[in-house]
């Protein structure tokens, strides 16, 4: 019984740690005084892939390049650039790969549509099997 409780505590600990992933890498010297601008910078950073670590956003990454990009984004915001302009600036240089949400283009159409196609195929198979099952 005691062991079970212990196990439960350990499991719930990992559960909490797993879901409370609040990590971010923004350093105090980077943060803008204007809270609105800072929020915009954070939002953009969350959608930009760290090109060094590749599976993290620059908001979470400690890589030097990610820091440079966070600073660059803040400078662009202070220069009065719009979010769209900033995304374009980065994707012009690094390609769409830098955007964590790939845009819907002819090239990425399969990426966006295939899940729905597979979903429909799945539904069709389930219905078909159901019919057969009922018949038998």
């Amino acid at each position: 019984m005691k062991n079970k409780k212990k196990l439960l505590v350990i499991i719930s600990f990992f559960f909490v740690v797993f879901f409370l992933n609040f990590s971010f890498a923004v350093e105090p010297d980077e943060i803008l005084e204007n809270k609105k601008q800072e929020l915009r910078a954070r939002n953009i950073s969350k959608n930009i892939r760290c090109m060094v670590c590749q599976n993290q956003s620059i908001d979470e990454s400690n890589a030097p390049l990610a820091k440079d990009m966070r600073i660059l984004i803040r400078e662009k915001i202070q220069d009065g650039k719009s979010d769209k302009e900033i995304y374009k600036f980065l994707s012009d240089r690094y390609g769409d790969f830098i955007l964590l949400n790939p845009p819907i283009k002819l090239k990425t159409l399969a990426l966006w549509l295939l899940p729905f196609v597979f979903f429909l195929i799945g539904i069709y198979i389930i219905f078909n099997q159901n019919k057969k099952f009922k018949k038998s």
Binding site: M51, V52, L65, D68, M69, I71, L72, R93, Y94, G95
Partner: peptide, 13 residues
């Protein structure tokens, strides 16, 4: 000095 030219060229390493 600050890696800005590198970003302009799309350099990542």
């Amino acid at each position: 000095k600050n890696g800005k030219i590198a970003i302009d060229w799309g350099v990542y390493g």
